[in-house]
Write a protein that binds this DNA or RNA. Structure first.
Lengths: 108, 108
DNA sequence: CATCTATTTGGCTATTTTGCCAAATATAAA
DNA sequence: TTTATATTTGGCAAAATAGCCAAATAGATG
């Protein structure tokens, strides 16, 4: 009972979105943008990486449709396009907490 | 205003969880396990990949704490440990729908 | 126009991820 | 014990990702 092409494509599309979130720096960026829009240089200061690296992370998130940009003068401001991605954090914390509990249980 | 080590570690931990989900096959597996537990060979039939590949995907999900396993006889049954990951799907569909809308808008 | 600042992109290397095959392991059954 | 089935693991090669530097681009300002 192998998957048809259409179903496969659907999962691939979903994975692309999630993959865009699957990086520490990009999670931090999303977290920051949840509060307010930021320009690239502000995010570089927060992240501490080379600005070209930050720009690449931003383009990955933008490409996935998670954030959007607006150029104002010489700066580019990024903001969260789909706030529901913030719901990920709650569940992720949940998983981490469960894992920690399990760790304790194993050690005992 | 660069990040401290602790904060960095927190985002890294979160990213590890999300990365475990960031693959089409693994999303399919999570989706299936949401309905009921499955043994590896059932999942292999659904996925269509080599069984060693499926096993590796399962170990990644298990390692992240998203699924758990139980050996019964010669088979290993996997089940969802943290159902809240299913909430991801709703938001991901949301993003995909928004992206499609934007596509339409651009074409017009 | 020349220059400055902010951002993106090309190009490169190092690292990680993927997926297969073959071999190892574990349990059940003959 | 031998055999068969289910699963995991080692090892490899191909592909994708990450992050840096340097160069290109774009807008603002003198």
């Amino acid at each position: 009972m192998i998957m048809d092409t259409k179903t496969k494509a659907r999962y691939a599309a979903r994975a692309r979105i999630i993959k865009a979130m699957a990086h520490p720096t990009r999670l931090l960026i999303v977290d920051q943008l949840a509060q307010r829009e930021h320009c690239v240089c502000e995010l570089r200061d927060l992240v501490g990486d080379d600005i070209s690296t930050v720009s690449r992370h931003l383009s990955i998130l933008k490409n996935a449709g998670i954030i959007e940009d607006e150029k104002r003068g010489t700066q580019v401001y990024y903001s969260l396009r789909v706030p529901c991605v913030l719901n990920f954090f709650g569940c992720v914390e949940n998983v981490l907490k469960q894992n920690a509990k399990e760790q304790l249980r194993v050690i005992d």
